[in-house]
Simulated scan of single mutants.
Amino acid sequence: MDAFYASVEQRDDPSLRGRPVAVGGSRERGVVAAASYEARAFGVRSAMPSVTARRKCPDLVFVKPRFEVYKAISSEIRAVFAEHTPIIEPLSLDEAYLDVSENLQGIASATVIAEDIRARIRERTGLTASAGVSYNKFLAKLASDHRKPDGLFVITPSMGAGFVETLPVGRFHGVGPATAAKMERLGIRTGADLRACTLAFLREHFGKIGPYYFGISRGIDERPVRADRIRKSVGAENTFSVDLFETEAMREALEPILDKVWRYCEGSGLRGRTVTLKIKDADFRQITRSQSVVLPVANRAELEQIAVRLLHERPSNPRGIRLLGVTLSALVDAAESRTADDVQFALPF
């Protein structure tokens, strides 16, 4: 979807249309969750601190997010996908991979399928979507970003390797800012530079993900579209209107965050073995602390106990805390996570 959260807000509030809009944060606090294309023209991006966004775009309008609305619209969009294929791998509320090799409509062309999906989304939601069509996930993702907003781009097998070689590595899905900076230090700036590297070199410098980089630089990606992709983590965070200095205030601030994480666990039937606490101070410096347990966290009280312990173990810092977050990862199905024998051996020593 094109600037999904911001586009929903502009759709529902005509006064926001044509104006630079940021969803999330506020004029002085928090971070931008999504930015309209009018805001992006000023350099405003998602995950940018609100104060920075405001500096780049003085006329920026901040709107509170309405996640229940976004989820409802996402379900409508997912229903459109399901009319064409059951093989859908969601990446987020507004993005998914679809394998249309054998589609339900009997349409012979993947490009025609993409056009039909985009038209149905616009008809049912009033929103625009961009689509990428190609012979693997990596190239389809690149293609989907190539003609945004409201675009469609196709990368055929004969185009794959050549298309990749001209792009900066920072544009590659799976190459984040830290990895892109590391590649820059190694003299790897484009797909062509990456393709010039041997597999041994990429393994040496990037470990087990090295073969993936070796493949995508040649337009190769063997990953299947997985309709049963299991979520790896669940988390929530909050940016505070006033910096927190006292541990007790931080502990109280954790309560709604823990509630949100545990509500998801209860609704999904998932439990996790690793709890991670995220802390960001008033100068935007961030630290994380994690603890893994042998058995999946069984209840909210146990989740809170671990999170509070991590909070007490944080390094001393005279600066106030502007953000706290909790993530539960190494998720498993609750029905399979504990047995009677497990509980017997889970007693504290």
Rank of each mutant, 00 (worst) to 15 (best):
I107D: 09
P157G: 11
R118G: 12
R229H: 14
R300L: 09
A340H: 09
A108C: 15
E222R: 11
T179L: 04
A129Q: 00
S75V: 14
A143R: 05
L167W: 03
R124D: 05
T276A: 03
L199R: 04
T198R: 02
R147K: 14
G43W: 08
S290L: 05
R251E: 07
H312C: 14
A119V: 12
D243E: 12
R251M: 06
T247G: 08
E336T: 03
L328I: 04
L127H: 06
R27Y: 08
P86Y: 12
V261C: 02
K137M: 01
R78K: 14
A110F: 13
E248C: 06
P318I: 07
Q286V: 08
G320Y: 10
S316G: 12
I121Q: 06
Y135E: 10
T179W: 01
N299Q: 08
A129R: 02
E248L: 10
V261W: 01
V261K: 02
R289A: 15
E204V: 08
G25D: 10
V154Y: 13
A335T: 11
D341I: 07
V32E: 09
R185A: 01
V169A: 02
A41Q: 07
R271M: 13
S233R: 07
E89V: 03
R223S: 15
L194H: 01
G18S: 05
E9Q: 15
A192R: 01
E76Y: 10
F153M: 11
T166M: 11
A119Q: 13
Q305W: 11
F245V: 13
A22R: 07
V44T: 09
E246V: 15
R54A: 13
L186I: 01
I155Q: 04
F138L: 00
E204Q: 15
G176Q: 05
P256Q: 02
R55T: 10
V44G: 09
L93N: 11
R319C: 10
R195V: 02
I88Y: 06
P14S: 13
S268R: 15
T179M: 07
S15H: 11
G106I: 11
R185G: 00
A3L: 05
A227V: 09
A72L: 08
A196M: 08
P211F: 00
L270A: 13
D116W: 11
I87N: 07
A192G: 05
R120E: 14
R120W: 10
R124L: 13
R289P: 06
I287Q: 11
V23Q: 01
E184I: 00
K182A: 04
D341V: 12
A108Y: 14
K208S: 13
R203G: 03
Q286I: 09
R231E: 10
S74G: 12
V297T: 05
S290V: 06
P14C: 12
V169M: 05
A119C: 10
S15N: 14
D243A: 14
L199A: 03
I209L: 00
D342M: 04
E336I: 02
S109L: 13
V332G: 13
L152R: 03
S130G: 02
H312V: 15
L186F: 04
D221R: 01
